[in-house]
Design a protein around this nucleic acid. Sequence first.
DNA 1: TTTTTATTGAAAATTATTTCACAAATCGAC
DNA 2: GTCGATTTGTGAAATAATTTTCAATAAAAA
Lengths: 212, 212
Amino acid sequence: MAETKIPKATAKRLPIYYRYLNILHDSDKNRVSSTELSEAVKVDSATIRRDFSYFGALGKRGYGYDVDSLLKFFKKILNQDKLTNAALIGVGNLGNALLNFNFHQNSNVRISAAFDVRPDIANTVQSGVPIYPMSELRKQLEDQQIKIVILTVPESVAQNVTDSAVAGGVQGILNFTPLRVSVPANVRVQNVDLTNELQTLIYFLDHYNEEN
Amino acid sequence: MAETKIPKATAKRLPIYYRYLNILHDSDKNRVSSTELSEAVKVDSATIRRDFSYFGALGKRGYGYDVDSLLKFFKKILNQDKLTNAALIGVGNLGNALLNFNFHQNSNVRISAAFDVRPDIANTVQSGVPIYPMSELRKQLEDQQIKIVILTVPESVAQNVTDSAVAGGVQGILNFTPLRVSVPANVRVQNVDLTNELQTLIYFLDHYNEEN
DNA sequence: TTTTTATTGAAAATTATTTCACAAATCGAC
DNA sequence: GTCGATTTGTGAAATAATTTTCAATAAAAA
């Protein structure tokens, strides 16, 4: 499992490459150089070549990369050739926006179930997604074999909900709460902390000038 | 400008520390060790000590850190002792959720103006925030001296809108669009790419096991 | 007071990531 | 076919970030 462990920094860039390759493909370009890619995705061209090289020699010297085969390759690598179902927990403010966000348009991920405590929305369908009561969380995750959840609950219940999700067999959590949840070592958490991002941006503005 | 340039990795962790210090403060704790912090924020304790030490000797050997003075220090560093106004551009799906999100609860940032093309919502007030038509973007940013914008417009107009915002004097952009926008070197962009985060999570699930 | 325990700060070592720079390969023109 | 222009892939160097280690110091216990 894994083609000799790619650096994490590289892994995080793969979706960016994948996305731009799709754009190139849609506009019928069939070759691309690392320099051209570099400008579009704002990653140094040497870094791009290095990233690609972890997967073998994907390009041709003096020519560049073939868009279609590169696209096909990354599609496979990123598991975008199969549909991945995810559950959304907490249909509030942000949760609702993410239900509508339609990850499926840009990636082969679909929110196939949502959960909320509020009795007035439980057992309804919002944006085409069935909302289950929180009490069914574990059972539904198990039954539907859902391995990924998007966590948009209030911070105060985040750890509890996480524990249930993990008990239900979840392996990955996209965590929008500010709480750094505790999970067993085999579960992966990806934090998206909006307040943090803003504060970091402000810090950089105040303390660094002119790029970098 | 800057206390001898802190590493970027450190800068990104500052808001996490700040947040937990607030929690400690609110629960009337007055000392904390790097080990305790480590468990809460899921950052290795040596990394925490190293991070803090860039700002000088903030703790006491054999004792730990004084919550209040550390909090006060970070509040200053992160500019959280003053109110920062931000503008939100694009009051769609996600934009609306962010308007309601209330950054102000967790940080001293307030969305003080929003912009949208749709004539039916221009010149209304949503969640206490005035919505201006897109045509006024540059002027309002200038008049209100807004330095930070949150970009939640469709990808197709992202570069255009960015250019106007930059023309209006913006220095930092929290970019929720998947487009890597081009900006002059003195403008900082912080990308929040939800599709990316999901794809990265899936990649890690498939290709790495047991943490790391 | 003395001893033990806890805990920081910092140097050094390690690991990770990026960047440079160039030989080798390929293409396209003539 | 040969030449010149491109562009990859990759060692080596540079830079960045994390982790180990431990002396120094503070507080608590004896």
